[in-house]
Design a protein around this nucleic acid. Sequence first.
DNA 1: ACCTGATAGGTGTATCGTACAGCCATATGG
DNA 2: CCATATGGCTGTACGATACACCTATCAGGT
Lengths: 142, 142
Amino acid sequence: MQVETRDEAMTVIQRELTTFARRARAAAARLHPRLSLVSATLLTHVAEHPGCRAADLAAHYLLDKSTISRQVAALERLGLVERRTAEDDHRAQVLHLTPAGAEVLADYVTARRQAFEQRLAGWSEEDLRRFAICLTRYNDGF
Amino acid sequence: MQVETRDEAMTVIQRELTTFARRARAAAARLHPRLSLVSATLLTHVAEHPGCRAADLAAHYLLDKSTISRQVAALERLGLVERRTAEDDHRAQVLHLTPAGAEVLADYVTARRQAFEQRLAGWSEEDLRRFAICLTRYNDGF
DNA sequence: ACCTGATAGGTGTATCGTACAGCCATATGG
DNA sequence: CCATATGGCTGTACGATACACCTATCAGGT
């Protein structure tokens, strides 16, 4: 597949992003049987934004608040996150990882890391940097 | 977020790819209410590989054959694809788009195109080309 | 102080996408 | 000509999700 023109590039980007999206769930399931892609992403976000709220997660992942509510409830039941009423607003719940949650997440990150290391083994540092920048720029567009 | 080292780049790639994957379904739903992401990807694959089989789809998207079977059955019920017994192997069904399927897919592609045009408006041709190449290379790794 | 509307989140319910196990029909190779 | 492999389908169960609606709380205006 040659990528000569702007149009061709656009077409390829669409196709490849879509293919990736469709494969992601299955790939993640293979990666770590104990933690689904969904749980992993929510844990990741909570880890990177301690004290965040359900609404933040919903906004970031474009999900309904009811979905988030259930997912967070499940994570709480598993003892991976902790919900505490916010001091400044008693409607809101602030989220934090529990030690167990941090541990499971660390496991997941390690497994994913290995998979990516393998997957991106042939890439030069410059290639990786470019890819990282492209992706970040793309996602920030939302 | 600076991307200085190989490690940082790898981390960013993982995070951004995951975020993208998690947003994809919702984004696709907004794009075209009549055609889910799933249907669209299957139609796309059939369009690009006329006469392909259910097993090809399963392999390409890392899905169970039962899933594909049902999805294809749904598309057939909607009159978007046609299943015909293969001449060389009477167990297999070869898949083709119907005219209606081609039309719906064209609609979808147009809508997606517009969304991407907007999304990637600020990108130079060179940026797009690089992104396209990165993504293709990444997906081909499977 | 009170209404009023907005906001954070949870529940009821329905649907879709998916996997796994097991089935049948056909094909292929000793 | 049988044994095994392969392509696909069905039964069943579950997870993720949305939409509509509910409750509790907050913030502003009178």
